[in-house]
């Protein structure tokens, strides 16, 4: 058991960026991001016996992490998700000198206006997944994945533009 735990922790630490990114995509508030992060880690650990090594560990992680985020709910029903970009200036202030990080910070804020499936689509797109891989991960047809992704990208563009960026 101890050995399994050690192997699991080593694997998960190599790919923890995936969990961080999913948490930030799905939760706006830092406290809730931390809770979701822990939840994903726990669900990954619970599901680890099902990992047979047929796919890459990271591929398996994408699925468990996204599925957990899709059905994860906090008691207060994620009210913070609806905070408009401009009201969360402090986060932007901290990183205002880092233009690149600012772009990502705005992206994280903008995706809060998407629904949970749209967040999953954008996440997988940013992770360089093809339409076929996105379709396989979400369990939808490839055509549907392509159309949904295009619409979601348009929606995201609109949100970012609405908040004062050129896109």
């Amino acid at each position: 058991m101890k050995e399994t735990e050690t192997i699991f922790l080593s694997l998960i630490n190599q790919h923890k960026a995936i969990i961080h990114k999913v948490s930030k995509m799905y939760m706006n508030d830092v406290e809730q991001q931390r809770d979701l992060f822990q939840e994903i880690v726990m669900q990954l650990w619970k599901a680890y016996p099902t990992f047979k090594g047929k796919s890459k560990f990271s591929t398996w992680m994408y699925r468990v992490a996204l599925n957990t985020a899709l059905v994860y709910f906090k008691k207060d029903n994620r009210k913070v998700d609806k905070i408009p970009l401009d009201e969360n200036i402090d986060l932007i202030d901290v990183i205002e000198n880092e233009l690149k990080e600012e772009k990502l910070a705005y992206l994280y804020k903008a995706v809060q206006e998407l629904n949970s499936v749209e967040k999953a689509l954008i996440f997988l797109f940013l992770e360089n997944q093809s339409h076929r891989e996105i379709a396989e991960n979400l369990g939808i047809s490839e055509i549907n994945a392509r159309v949904k992704l295009n619409r979601t990208k348009e929606k995201l563009q609109f949100i970012i533009k609405k908040n004062g960026y050129e896109f």
């Binding site: 960026a17 990114k21 233009l99 690149k100 990080e101 600012e102 772009k103 990502l104 705005y106 992206l107 797109f125 940013l126 992770e127 360089n128 990208k153 970012i160 960026y165 050129e166 896109f167």
Partner: peptide, 16 residues
Amino acid sequence: MVMNFDDLKNEWNADG
């Protein structure tokens, strides 16, 4: 500031 999906993708992937 100007954004596009390619930029975002690059920055996303560079974000460790």
